[in-house]
Amino acid sequence: MSTSTLPDAVAVTGLTKRYGRRTVVDDVSVRIPSGSVTGLIGPNGAGKTTVMSMLLGLVRPTSGEGQVLGHDLARPKAYVGRVGALIEGPAFHPSMSGRANLRNLVRLGRHDPEQIAPLLHLVGLADRGDDLYGAYSLGMKQRLGIAAALLGDPDLVILDEPTNGVDPQGMRDIRHLVRRIAEGGRTVLVSSHLLAELEHVCDHLVVIDRGGLRYQGPMDELPTGRREVIRVAADGAATDLHDLLVRDGLEATARGTVTEVEIGEADPVRLAARINSTAHAAGITLTELHHQRQTLEDRVLELVGNGSAS
């Protein structure tokens, strides 16, 4: 997905935005590798949309500097033509069809009109392109917004909550869509309140909270607050199972009827097999044996302290 030797698509430092005394974004430095799919995560009001708006030149930073697609952040006119974005929700003229709205944006940005049909097809609106935008469902509006973001074949695509208000099927469609957008080597920056969605598509993460940066880097290097475990249970033999695993040299902790075995540096699959084999040899039948992974949500929640990451 990523691993580029090219300059970062986005490299900004000290990004700050204040409205009067209220600091919305506080000294955030963001680096987005070219070709990566980067998730922008943070609780509601963390400043995600403001960060994206500053990258797009819609909001003027109070301070901060850097480059977007090799151009000075302070001169968005120089690079915004190569950035496609869906930010703060889709915004189109309700009395025009989806296709007519795209055509209007093509005129506005001097894009290639031949892109319209393939983009409508890509976002699954080929059959509904001539319907009035005002008659679209929320999911269809989001998809049209993504199509609009892809006009002009941008190098950097910024999607702000693209799954907002979309049903589970629509979320899956948009997840696939984000993957397809990235397939052309584009850099994608996406924020979502559904961390599980980002877990499936992103390779980099930027985590912000209360306007400040909490983490940025590869997703698999996101700090894990607590160690991962294998949960084991055996009907009516919880104590025996716990004692057995401890005697076997494993770091096991009894939690009611369940025993949790620390994975540490071990291979979880091999460790699970070992536990199963040990229990079987001792005549204990396991009723539960699974690797309890930390989800992205768990890890982000630990990072930002409390509240719901979104």
Binding site: P7, S34, G70, R107, R110, R179, A182
Partner: peptide
């Protein structure tokens, strides 16, 4: 997901940004 990445250099940005506002609004009206 992909191995190819695009160059970060710009090409013809100014050309792309030029004009179109009159035509877009005129067409909408």
């Amino acid at each position: 997901m992909t191995t190819a990445t695009r160059p970060a250099e710009t090409t013809g940005t100014d050309r792309r940004l030029r004009g179109g506002a009159f035509l877009a609004e005129w067409t909408r009206l």
